[in-house]
């Protein structure tokens, strides 16, 4: 008698599906919007002639199923910003849909794309510093603010990178990094630089959840309202954590009788 349920062994997950799921999760973890992830996965599945493919993507998980195969699920735990990965995988899916390559080669090129064009961590400190420097001048800073802002941006990025590397949760990492970001501003206020506000703002702007806000909007227009709501919430929590961290340092400084004009 034939069993009703055929079980897993007769219905293995082909490699194509897992590779496509990996591509999707790499995109999502690098900060791509939901519509792009779904589109890319569909395009890859179409290139490998999978039938009746269904893809569901949330900011924290994705599911892909094709007819006659088991569903593949990926959980996305660590989300960051790496637009180089988004670009590389986007390019890869375009190439593959025009002239298909073997699944093994796709896997190799995907692994390559995930490591793509990352600048060295020390270089990131410099970029954060320059960004903070430019912002301090935009916020009405004077030449005297340049150096503290540069230090503030670099220091903030250093603390955030280090905490992320240690595996600290994003919200907590943002809060602690913001608490440190304020230190150069407080120091300049202590040594008599008036209106240290632009230095403070420059430091915490490095932590701004600009990507979350942008993707939330783009998800919302596409009708992916669940992702949009989740990302707005994440952006608000992140902004709250940054404000709390910065306030903490500033409060202690003021409570100790520091000067702040």
């Amino acid at each position: 008698m034939k069993p009703i349920s055929s079980g897993q062994s007769e219905n293995p997950v082909p490699k194509v599906l897992t590779v496509i799921a990996d591509a999707g999760s790499a995109l999502l973890a690098s900060g791509a919007e939901v519509a792009r992830v779904e589109d890319t996965m569909q395009r890859l599945a179409f290139a490998y002639h999978l039938k009746s493919v269904e893809v569901i993507v949330f900011p924290t998980a994705l599911f892909i199923n094709a007819s006659g195969m088991n569903t593949v699920i990926r959980r996305i735990k660590n989300r960051g910003v790496n637009l180089a990965v988004v670009r590389a995988i986007n390019q890869l899916s375009r190439d593959v849909s025009q002239n298909p390559i073997a699944v093994e080669e796709l896997e190799n090129r995907l692994a390559e794309a995930r490591r793509t064009a990352r600048y060295r961590p020390e270089a990131n400190l410099l970029f954060a510093g320059i960004g903070a420097l430019a912002i301090s001048q935009l916020m009405g800073g004077r030449p005297v603010d340049l150096l503290p802002a540069l230090i503030g941006g670099a220091l903030t990025q250093l603390v955030r990178q280090w905490l992320r590397h240690m595996g600290v949760a994003n919200g907590v990492a943002d809060m602690l990094a913001a608490a440190v970001a304020v230190v150069p501003a407080v120091a300049s206020a202590y040594w008599g630089i008036s209106y240290p506000g632009s230095i403070l703002v420059a430091g915490i702007m490095v932590l701004t959840p600009g990507l979350l806000m942008t993707t939330a909007v783009r998800d919302g227009i596409q009708g992916d309202v669940l992702s949009a709501a989740a990302r707005i919430l994440e952006a608000l929590l992140s902004a709250g954590a940054i404000a709390a961290g910065a306030s903490l340092t500033l409060y202690m400084y003021l409570a100790l009788g520091g000067r702040w004009t």
Partner: peptide, 22 residues
């Protein structure tokens, strides 16, 4: 032929109201 996100995210940062939050 690149994601719009790549251009939006860096350019929108300067408009973020960090000054008001401060």
């Amino acid at each position: 032929h690149e994601p719009a996100l790549v251009f939006v995210v860096p350019s929108i940062i300067v408009f973020v109201p960090g000054d008001l939050v401060y």
